[in-house]
Design a binder for these strands. Structure first.
Lengths: 94, 94
DNA sequence: GTAAAGTAGTTTATATTATAAACCAAAATT
DNA sequence: AATTTTGGTTTATAATATAAACTACTTTAC
């Protein structure tokens, strides 16, 4: 009846990031920070967790002289997000 | 874009409890424990939190000689659940 | 009738998580 | 050349979830 909710996705900020990445394909740190209205520190930590789980890939480069962190959702991440949404549905239908 | 998710409802067990109560109107401790497959201790704590928030009411009585804890969702709880579901939608649409 | 097991919970301790605050290095601005 | 801003990371703290231990009583088995 109530399937377990992936704890990695059941977090407001990580879920917001995944939600953005699933329709955007690529997004940089600053963009994610603005869209999610998070602090840089929090975002940095949560991106690491998503990355360690293999849900996103993180690529570090430079935009001119400024560091640029680009995130992309992985296949595994897409699957996890879809699973999470399906599990959640069991909790939401009234 | 991403509305804040009520932290009281953004918890697997509390959400499951609210999901049950919203369509059941009343449920006792043992029933909730079985349906949510939670431990008694965890359920006890989470029910208290929902109760303190005014999302559910808890009535203690006796079923013969055994203690009976009956839970009901409140108007405030229904509103909170609906708000939560609506906020979540912003995270899930792909 | 009393010891053991079961029921219905609560309290407390611990592990995990989220978040903010502090920090760092380089670049841009005054 | 000092100050502020950008783009982050690391570390510390507060909040949360969860399980384990406990309480109080009841039922069952001997």
């Amino acid at each position: 009846m109530f399937k377990d909710l992936d704890p990695l996705l059941h977090s407001q900020l990580r879920l917001a990031v995944m939600s953005l990445l699933i329709s955007l394909d690529a997004a940089d740190f600053t963009f994610l920070k603005e869209k999610t209205k998070s602090t840089a520190g929090n975002l940095s930590v949560q991106l690491d967790k998503l990355s360690e789980a293999g849900y996103i890939s993180i690529e570090k480069s430079f935009n001119g002289k400024k560091p640029l962190t680009t995130c992309r959702i992985t296949k595994k991440g897409i699957k996890a997000f879809e699973d999470y949404v399906n599990s959640l549905k069991g909790y939401l239908k009234t």
